[in-house]
Structure formats: structure tokens, C-alpha cells
Amino acid sequence: MLYKKNNYRIAIPKGALFQSSCDILKKANLEFDFQDRKLIFETNEKNIEVLLVKPIDVPVYVENGAADLGIVGSDILGEHYAQTLTLMMLPFGHCELMMAVPNDSPIQSLAQTPDYCKIATKFPKLTRLFFRQKGIPIEIIELNGSIEIAPLTGLSEAIVDLLATGRTLKENGLIKIETISKHSARLIANRVSWQVNHDWIIKILTAINSANNS
């Protein structure tokens, strides 16, 4: 028997965007009681559920229709292709993807990047695209976390990572030399949901919009 869902669902990311996502939903009159370890939450609207998933899984849930709407950073949309609709920018989750090197690195600017420079990153696609556009051949070392220690241990010469406050960078003796792209949170939708549940999606959009503007 094929699973059929009857409720509207919004997927929100764990981690850095979690609190702001809850806040914006609250401003749009959608509230739920957060409990540790629980991953699906009923809301004050009886036919709306909120899913709590890993940031990179938000587009996956939305693309496949398991969630109608999702909140996700534009960095993830750029890195992991998903066929979804990007409906609007949300006013939080601002950060930039940047290139950083150790304080004492011989590389002090993008122009000084040597050919086949080793760059550690969680964002291989965006990094490759950027350096290809600049015409600089690089070698990407794909990591899943703690990117900052890659140059300190000799694994790479530089890193490409997200920068929100810059504290981690400073604590690890790194310095930013180039901005690659700027990012913030997006509201995304499944296309079939957009068509079939259009009135509901517009209602949520309008509520978020007026919450943003007030």
C-alpha cells in the first residue's frame, strides 16, 4: 500500500536556521511545542505539521513531495540540485561563502592562488564553479566538517567555507581573502503542492510576508 499524506507539511532545518525558522512561522501564526528528540510536530493549525530535518535534507523532502514547503539556506540550494520552486527570500541566515587561508600563508589574495591549490570545503560544486569562472585550476578536498583545521594540519592550503560571525576563523588563525557568494534563507515549495494546494501556500506566503514587513 502506498503511503499517502493528508496534512500540509513544512520542513525546517536543524542547526543555525532552526530558531529563526520557528520565529518566522510563529509570526505567521504557526506554533508548535518543541521537544527534544521529536522530529514531527503538530502545530496549532490542526492540518499542518512541521518536520525537523538536517539542512541538506530539506530540499529532498520538498522535491519528493513529503513536505509541501521548506526553509533552507541558499548555499544548500546552490550546492545540492533539487527540482523545487524557490518562492521567496527570508530575512535571516545571512552568511557568505568565502575563501580563507592561514594568517601566515604566502597566498594573500585570490590572484596569488597557485595552480592546483589544495582547497578543503564542504561545498565542492560552488567552489569548483567559482574557480572555473576565474580560470584558476584547483584541487578540491571534500570534507564534511571542521574545515578550519585542514590548512593547520597540512591537508590543504586554503579553505572555502561559510562565514557568519568570523569567530571560528579567528580562533583557528585563519583570515578571509575572498568572498565567493552571499547567502540567506529561502522558502521553497514542491511544484505539485504549489499547483494542488495553491491557496494554502499563498496564505502562508502572505502571512510570512506581512510578518516580515511589520
Binding site: E63, N64, G65, V192, Q195, V196
Partner: peptide
Amino acid sequence: DFTMRPDPNYYTGLYFEVVIPNTGK
């Protein structure tokens, strides 16, 4: 849904897709 634009670019007028609610594609 006018925001749905046809995929193969040989389409010229009416364009349509068949969907089943809550299945995604």
C-alpha cells in the same frame, strides 16, 4: 499554472502535465 513552462522546447501553445496530489512529481 502559468508558472509551469514546458520542458522540451518544441511545445508551442497549450501545455499540460498530469499530477497526483501529494506525490511530488
